[in-house]
């Protein structure tokens, strides 16, 4: 359909062009326009209302001198790295176990994946309740006789982010498992047979043959996890509201609070631009690799 020149082509494509108007508007107005608008205004003096008075990097300097922002970044880094490592490991192990031609595979898969259907708000509230030191896990272990047992991640500023991580992993690993399972199923049965004939133990086959073959799946999964992590917001709001104190703040919450609660738009714009930057750092190299791969393939 690439050829042009026939007079009817232009007329026929009119409907297609009309149908594509929402997409064009979304792409240009929201994804390009709104993003540029925010990036531009992050260099301005915007406070209660957006302003166009240019102040250079002032907002960024203030941002990086805020203790709350530094804590947010630190939390995001801990949460991000842990959740990437653990969800990849757990997701892959679960997928590998489900790939052993077991019975009840569908049942197990449904169980591991159902948390993913729940919202972060529901997830956060359930885990807030389970981790409640008065009634939850701490109480149970104490009842077993360990009177001094302490497990109150949501009330301890030092480890609160790990409390959130537990909930986040519970919610998200099912998805990773599904992606990994799809990757494992995409591997040729003959490779397994060949490895078996050669007498290579199963774990070695996984580590030295299967996982390297699933490189693309791993990279895509990592990009999905990473771009999701930057957006973490609801989970923290539901589970701790950023507390105790500001110990579990995250960048997305910083943005929301400064834009809609503290009436300090400039800070919100600067913080969200930093979030955009971190996503670009992840997505651009990935897109570049993907694009290059596609080119050489086709």
């Amino acid at each position: 359909m690439a050829q042009t020149g026939r007079p009817t082509q232009l007329f026929r494509n009119k409907s297609a062009k009309i149908a594509a108007i929402p997409m064009v508007l979304t792409a240009l107005v929201v994804f390009v326009g709104a993003t540029l608008w925010t990036v531009f205004h992050s260099f301005t003096k915007s406070k209660l209302l957006p302003s166009t008075k240019f102040v250079g990097l002032d907002q960024y300097e203030r941002l990086w001198s805020q203790n709350r922002w530094l804590i947010s970044i630190e939390n995001l880094a801990i949460y991000g790295i842990c959740s990437m490592i653990f969800s990849l490991i757990i997701g892959f192990l679960l997928a590998a176990m489900l790939d052993q031609k077991i019975r009840f595979e569908n049942t197990f898969r449904s169980i591991f994946l159902y948390p993913f259907a729940l919202s972060f708000i529901v997830t956060g509230l359930v885990w807030q309740w389970i981790l409640n030191p008065e009634f939850g896990i701490q109480k149970i272990v104490r009842n077993l006789g360990f009177e001094n047992f302490v497990f109150d991640p949501l009330y301890n500023p030092d480890i609160v982010i790990y409390g959130i991580l537990i909930a986040g992993l519970w919610q998200g690993t099912g998805l990773i498992m599904c992606l990994m399972l799809a990757g494992l199923r995409g591997i040729d049965e003959d490779i397994w047979k060949a490895a078996r004939v050669d007498g290579i133990p199963m774990w070695k086959t996984y580590i030295f043959i299967v996982i390297p073959m699933m490189r693309a799946v791993f990279i895509t999964t990592l990009v999905i996890i990473a771009s999701g992590i930057v957006k973490v917001y609801d989970l923290v709001v539901a589970q701790t509201s950023g507390g105790p104190g500001i110990a579990s703040e995250v960048p997305a919450k910083y943005v929301y609070d400064y834009m809609f609660k503290n009436q300090n738009l400039g800070q919100g714009f600067a913080a969200s631009t930093m979030m955009l930057l971190s996503v670009l750092v992840i997505v651009v190299p990935w897109a570049y690799l993907e694009f290059k791969g596609e080119r050489s393939r086709g």
């Binding site: 994804f31 925010t38 919100g268 979030m275 996503v279 997505v283």
Partner: peptide, 13 residues
């Protein structure tokens, strides 16, 4: 690519 942009960047506009 827009799908990867954090929502926080676009919410105010």
């Amino acid at each position: 690519f827009g799908a990867f942009i954090p929502y926080q960047v676009m919410i105010y506009p």
